[in-house]
């Protein structure tokens, strides 16, 4: 093939346009499915922190259960989720998060409407070491926060690890730093949320 100046450029333009249009088409075809998957993930998390069990893990069932129980609200620029029963607010779910050992940890926590109990929490993303800090997203750790009494929390110290005298939760063995940061941002976020909510009234 003889070397010309124009041919490679035209070739590259044509081939790029061709492949890009394939990708654009695929992206267009799947964009709704992907958005729906992400919504399902979020709904699953929110239902989990409220301790509401959807009838099945089917995305449609999750969506229906979510719409039945949960409403969205704005608080200080953040989206929070509210569960109401007979027009009366039962519980709130709000975002939590902070820096873990390796990166940002993000999740949601739910609290009862009288701020006396933590209903549950879940993490949507973290980059802690699998098998060590990564176990924060495992059931035994998260289960400890179900129905955790918050009334004993003084000076924003709601989560205290055993064996401290007033400890209420077990940290993860071998993951001291991750456990510490989880309790740090949890305490901060719970405190902030209660203050914001109370200040609103």
């Amino acid at each position: 093939m003889k070397k010309s100046f124009g041919y490679p450029i035209i070739f590259m333009v044509v081939i790029t346009a061709f492949f890009t249009s394939i990708l654009a088409f695929l992206n267009y075809k799947t964009i709704d499915v992907i958005a729906y998957n992400q919504e399902t993930d979020l709904r699953r998390t929110i239902l989990y922190v409220f301790d509401i069990e959807p009838p099945s893990d089917d995305p449609k069932a999750i969506e229906d259960t979510f719409n039945q129980y949960v409403e969205e609200e704005e608080l200080d620029g953040q989206t929070i989720y509210v569960v109401k029963e007979d027009g009366e607010t039962k519980a709130y779910a709000f975002p939590i998060g902070g820096t873990g050992l390796w990166g940002t940890v993000e999740g949601y926590a739910a609290i009862s409407s009288d701020y006396s109990k933590l209903l549950g929490l879940d993490f949507i993303s973290h980059s802690e070491t699998p098998g060590l800090g990564g176990r924060i997203s495992e059931e035994p750790f998260k289960q400890q926060f179900r129905g955790l009494d918050l009334t004993g929390g003084k000076d924003g110290e709601y989560i205290v690890y055993r064996p401290a005298p007033n400890g209420n939760v077990d940290a993860i063995a071998g993951a001291t730093l991750t456990s510490e940061s989880v309790s740090r941002f949890l305490n901060k976020d719970i405190d902030n949320f209660i203050k914001l909510k109370k200040g609103e009234k």
Binding site: K3, F11, M12, I15, I22, L23, N27, I34, N37
Partner: peptide, 25 residues
């Protein structure tokens, strides 16, 4: 054209990788 084949290869590979990524997502 021989002298731009690497560019073409990278383009093709990335197209298939993105297809795979979209599919998994």
């Amino acid at each position: 054209p021989k002298h731009i084949r690497m560019m073409v290869q990278v383009l093709i590979i990335s197209v298939y990788v993105i297809i795979l990524d979209i599919f998994l997502k």
